[in-house]
């Protein structure tokens, strides 16, 4: 059996008094893609953002329960959020390249970490952009601003930027919902390439997308995890009535 890289036990999250996550138990083993689906406001994005402690930025959030990354408690007092976010990278709904060149965007994390060797940086830029399947489109203007790219290219540069710091887990929060269908399918192809090397957790509104790319799918509703299984089972033969209703489009 493969080892779980990330485990969640009895995770509750409150915005002030409102309970947004009501005791989530969910484990992820290494590599592969897990999709988190569910109606708007079901807590799937909130859950994703607890995994690299991005919810820390929101005032008035209380979190109880345990999240362990390779056995280490992410919320232990000694946990280093900076280190956590290096190992658990994140791509957002809105492509958010920094207002610098493509090259600088990709190596930003490394450069700030102190890497100066030009050859190594060049190599990382090429490797990351290739992995993100955007190298051929941008290789001739690496030193132009990333903001001049199309939305889909920007999003893949953002993926490359995450890959450049060599994370083990990549979280994606509806990465294609702001993109056109062509760009979306390019991102999907990119993710399918990456699934052998990284543990990928993706929140998506798009059920077809989940069924196309995910190995495993988790269905959330009203702050609870209703069902998690192989994607095939979730879509063809869900165990839970609510899942079936949602999948078949009866609500949400």
């Amino acid at each position: 059996m493969k080892e779980d890289i990330l485990t969640t036990q009895d995770l509750h999250l409150y915005y002030g008094d409102k309970e947004a996550l009501k005791g989530i138990n969910l484990d992820f083993d290494e590599k592969g893609i897990t999709a988190l689906i569910g109606p708007s406001g079901c807590g799937k994005s909130t859950y994703l953002r607890t995994l690299n402690r991005m919810n820390d930025l929101i005032p008035n959030v209380t979190i109880t329960g345990t999240i362990k990354f390779k056995g280490n408690d992410l919320y232990a007092p000694s946990a280093d959020t900076v280190q956590i976010r290096k190992e658990i990278g994140m791509v957002f709904q809105q492509p958010n390249p920094f207002p610098f060149s493509i090259y600088d965007n990709v190596i930003y994390g490394l450069r700030i970490a102190g890497e100066k060797d030009k050859e190594r940086l060049d190599a990382v830029v090429e490797k990351s952009l290739r992995q993100a399947a955007v190298w051929d489109e941008v290789k001739d203007h690496l030193h132009e601003s990333a903001l001049a790219l199309s939305g889909g290219q920007q999003q893949r540069v953002c993926i490359a930027r995450v890959l450049a710091v060599s994370p083990e887990i990549i979280l994606l929060d509806e990465p294609t919902s702001a993109l056109d269908p062509v760009s979306s399918s390019q991102i999907e192809a990119t993710l399918l390439n990456l699934r052998h090397d990284y543990t990928i957790i993706i929140v998506t509104h798009n059920l077809q997308q989940a069924s196309r790319i995910a190995d495993r799918t988790a269905f959330f509703m009203n702050g609870e995890l209703i069902e998690v299984d192989q994607t095939k089972n979730i879509f063809m033969n869900p165990a839970n009535k609510q899942t079936e209703d949602y999948i078949s489009g009866r609500f949400g």
Partner: peptide, 9 residues
């Protein structure tokens, strides 16, 4: 800001 923080800065 989120981009920077999520990158481990």
């Amino acid at each position: 800001r989120e981009g920077g923080l999520a990158l481990g800065l």
